[in-house]
Design a protein around this nucleic acid. Structure first.
Lengths: 340, 340
DNA sequence: CTGAAAGCGCTTACAG
DNA sequence: CTGAAAGCGCTTACAG
């Protein structure tokens, strides 16, 4: 039979039945040939695989999902990607998922709509779990718990919702806040400020609480602790505002790295020397923080551990009992004054 | 009938048949109630929707895909997310896709494996199209075309593969390179350098070719044009290397913004003043470029247009006839010397 | 080990 | 407009 080029025709998709015919076996056999633990003889398997190869057969994961009731799809729900921390986390998640033979459905959640709706839309794809990156998610959508009761585990990453019994994996922000205070205190700082993020988030609250607690143990309290959001522009503006107000700290704890970087840029703009006049410390350890022009001292979130933990939790969801916390690690660079 | 709380039981998933029973209609009716253009009377529709509401029914998109042969899934394949340009593009794509009622499958492509394999894995999910962000993809996988012949349009975003008839949407990099040269020439530059990206990519090649062409029209040629990759560290290193070699340009065209930002940081590190001693121009206009401490003059890629175009192309794929090019736009900021 | 058959949860002609 | 029925492409007991 001569072969005709089929450039114009949309080639009909080839199914297991086609392969069965080609290989001279039953359709069940070809299914078994593609199912890891199945009972099938080596010769049969080989014939099937060869036939599949010839025909360009690829099992249909959609059909498989329908019968196995497992889609292999995990939804990654993210608000926005302005903070570089999230793309980093996102891509590591997707990569890990792939290594487990799963797929990541990326959903950009519009802050204007209800998370619940977003989750529902995802649920129709029979997702096995949803990981929520609450970049813009402040308050607790009361309905969020429903989904996890509906059989699909929902995990909040990098945040927890006090009072809601959701799965969550986060950095130990309270301890991290304490650590930041400790480092700054050790450097000799006396007038410390906190430039907050979104005040409704647990990340902001916990970091601030830890920071304040440690300060009070030293008989101090923050000379300022403005809250805003977790973005660069806010770090710049808050610093400029402080300067305009004449209230001048000798150490600043930025709620996260991107805010701290805004602080650094504003400080440079104002002509203040870091760390000679002001020490600055951040939180996250995003890649940018290591750059030549920042060299930001910061508390690193153990992303890899957190992701591994999150994946482990959703694959074997237990009733949540508070957030799962991972300790942050101090990364010494050049924005905090060395003790003499 | 009393209701029992079912906290411990994984609630069986409710199907259209359950809803049909609850509403006292046929299963077909409930399907119609959820199909936009279907013929169904308003009262029936309402009864179905109410029953669905009571039962918490959500149509199963997997089952629907199987019969309609349309999954509504578009694969977004990305190498790495180091260049902030990609997360930006990625999230805009996902958002647009959602607005069209589609879903984004995020696939992180490991540079060590064949793109073809990645594409095949995606294909098993019956994706309707694949958008490839070739962050690390240099050479042309010869098999790439197969997939597009297999019925699934594959579109390269922000790059094209000369000699391969793939769908592709990109910025007009050649014209952009010319524009960069023009701007620098107008500022009075005489000794111009290009700090390249990955030399195997069309983005690098086209930008360099346009740049060089315009220079030659002015009777000049680049005093240096080292190639490396599209990352920050390379921008730093290339600048430091130039300095060490004593070859000093009065204007630098960075292959993309993140490289140009590396250049800027290195220049600051070396104590060279921008733009007084050296002008710098980039390409992309990523968000970072607007920051207080960079204020990078650059050629903006019209991301929104490019994305809209890409989506339009994959929804109605025509035989590719070369890349679809969008003109870049000059964004004036503060790293190129103003003409006197 | 292998095949025939049922069934996953939908959509969509086909009759009425 | 509505329902009964076939069928999308698989997996998986059930017999052999």
């Amino acid at each position: 039979m001569p072969t005709f080029p089929q450039l114009a025709l949309p080639s009909r998709r080839v199914t297991s039945t086609d392969v069965a015919r080609e290989a001279g076996v039953s359709q069940s056999a070809v299914s078994r040939a593609f199912t890891p633990g199945a009972h099938i003889s080596a010769p049969t398997r080989r014939r099937v695989l060869e036939a599949a190869q010839r025909l360009g057969y690829q099992p249909n994961a959609i059909a498989r999902s329908l019968v196995t009731q497992r889609s292999g799809i995990v939804a990654l729900i993210v608000g926005d990607l302005h903070n570089p921390f999230y793309p980093q986390a996102l891509s590591q998640f997707a990569q890990e998922l792939e290594e487990q033979g799963k797929r990541a459905l990326l959903i950009i959640h519009d802050a204007r709509q209800d998370v619940q709706e977003t989750l529902n839309a995802a649920r129709s794809y029979q997702i096995e779990a949803a990981i929520v990156f609450p970049t813009r998610l402040n308050a607790a959508p009361p309905s969020l718990g429903d989904v996890s009761r509906g059989g699909v585990p929902v995990l909040l990453f990098n945040r927890h919702l006090p009072g809601h019994n959701l799965l969550s994996v986060a950095c130990d922000n309270f301890a991290g806040g304490r650590l930041a205070a400790q480092v700054l205190l050790d450097s000799g700082a006396k007038r410390l400020a906190f430039i907050g993020g979104d005040p409704q988030t647990s990340t902001h609250q916990d970091r601030l609480a830890g920071f304040t607690e440690r300060l009070s143990e030293a008989g101090l309290s923050p000379i300022a602790a403005p809250a805003g959001n977790f973005q660069y522009d806010w770090g710049v503006q808050a610093t400029l505002d402080m300067h305009a107000a004449g209230e001048w700290p000798d150490a600043i704890f930025g709620a996260n790295d991107i805010v701290a970087i805004g602080v650094l840029d504003a400080l440079r703009h104002l002509g203040r020397r870091v760390p000679e006049e002001v020490s600055v410390i951040g939180f996250d350890d995003i890649q940018e923080s290591a750059r030549l022009s920042y060299r930001l001292t910061t508390i690193r979130q153990p992303l890899e551990q957190m992701i591994a933990d999150a994946l482990q939790v959703i694959s074997d969801p237990q009733p949540a009992s508070g957030p799962r916390l991972h300790p942050g690690e101090l990364i010494w660079r050049e924005t905090v004054r060395r003790t003499l």
